[in-house]
Amino acid sequence: MEKIEPGKNDRKEMTNILNRYKVIISLVTAVMTIALLSSPLFVQAQDTGSYPVGNPLGLTYDGDFNPISSNVSVYGAINNAESCIYDADRKLIIVPSRGVSQRVQVNDAWVSLINSDGSVHTTKWIGVQNPGQRSELSPPLVLNDPLGSEIADGVLYFADRDGGTSQDDPTVAVIRRFDLETGAPLEDIRLEDSPWINDIAVAKDGTIYTTQTGDLGQNPDPQSWKVWKVSPQGDISEFAVGEPINIPNGIALDSDGNIVVVNFGNPEVLTFSPEGELLKTEKAVQAGGDGIEIMPDGTKYVSSVRQGGITRISPNGSAELIAENIPSAASICYDSDANQLVVPMTSQSTLGFVPLD
């Protein structure tokens, strides 16, 4: 029997048909996956009595939640995280993941709870709902692009922003606040005169300080480098503008209530009084500073997102590197129970851990 070879046009048509089948199969698979994840077996949200948040890892079936076996460790849950904060009451690390950019999907961020060994406690605590469901919650959930984070007086704070959905859509800085116990959103604070804010610190009296990193280009405008102050009454003002702050990034409060700012543009770490007076200038080993943690004795730990080191600045002002070559070492936090620094590695979508002596 003569063997008939298909022509080029026949082969092309067969390829097109196969590709169409592949697309159909992919769509069917996606629909089946969504249906499975929506079934009671995979439901992760729990109702705390006031607001639905995510369960720890486990499964819900027959109406009951069952935690994952204690002999199972799970790692991950982090996506493009810029900061972390340690919840000493829960003994868990709180990590906000930024998700995709505003131009791709608004309101896509979420908050994970991580154990001190890096394993996952709750993949999505705040933000277990998809972006399309969040507006239906009461109150609605909005979490777009969280950078810095802080805990104060039972409230969880994030430096966030609205807008930026297109090149022509301006951004506006927003301080998001959540009830630390329930995860429920509290009233936002909009900084209408700021396009975006980076890190955040809260004083004992409730005063909020937040950095506007500003221009980072070749010819930056120093007037765009700011530290904003929000009084307990909600009054918004500029705490510091321009030099000596130089592309301000990290911010924290020391045990005396002074405001400590980490410059990205140079290695300087600046300490201001609550009245705005510059009290002290110290230097990290590396420039490109991002996060800062201050110990009760005054020791400071500063991360460099640009050069990847962790600087320890002693109370006498001497500085040394205690860790280095950490990719995109962002805004660190201190895990007091494990006596370790936790380092969000933004470009790696993971966390690094630095034990302290």
Rank of each mutant, 00 (worst) to 15 (best):
Y21H: 13
I200C: 03
Q102M: 07
Y209G: 01
S50K: 05
D117Y: 08
G308I: 04
G118Q: 04
G291A: 05
P52E: 12
I294C: 09
S101Q: 05
N16A: 14
I126W: 02
P56R: 14
D160C: 07
P96F: 03
Q133P: 00
L137Q: 07
Q46P: 01
G49P: 01
F178Y: 15
T299E: 11
V128A: 13
V172I: 15
P67D: 10
L143G: 03
I4R: 12
E243G: 13
Q105K: 06
Q46T: 14
A184M: 15
E320P: 00
E181Y: 03
G164H: 08
V23I: 15
S328A: 15
S331F: 03
G58D: 09
N246K: 15
A323V: 05
S303I: 02
Q307T: 06
R306W: 07
M1N: 09
V23R: 15
K229M: 13
I259H: 06
I251K: 08
S224C: 07
G206M: 04
N19T: 06
V227H: 02
L143C: 09
I175R: 10
N80V: 06
L186A: 04
A45D: 15
V230G: 07
L113Q: 08
V155A: 07
L57K: 04
V227P: 01
F42V: 10
Y157G: 04
S97T: 04
D87Q: 06
G206P: 00
P296D: 11
R306T: 09
N266A: 12
A184F: 02
S273H: 09
T211A: 10
A203L: 00
R161V: 00
V260Q: 13
K8R: 12
D168F: 14
L37F: 14
Q133L: 12
R11K: 15
G7R: 06
G118C: 09
T311C: 12
D179V: 03
W228T: 01
A77M: 04
D297M: 04
E243R: 15
D89I: 05
E136A: 14
A330T: 07
V106P: 00
I4Q: 11
P296H: 04
S101A: 10
G257N: 14
V128E: 10
T211Q: 07
V241N: 12
D188H: 09
P40F: 11
S97Q: 01
L41E: 14
N258T: 14
K91P: 00
Y209W: 05
S73R: 13
D199V: 00
P267Q: 13
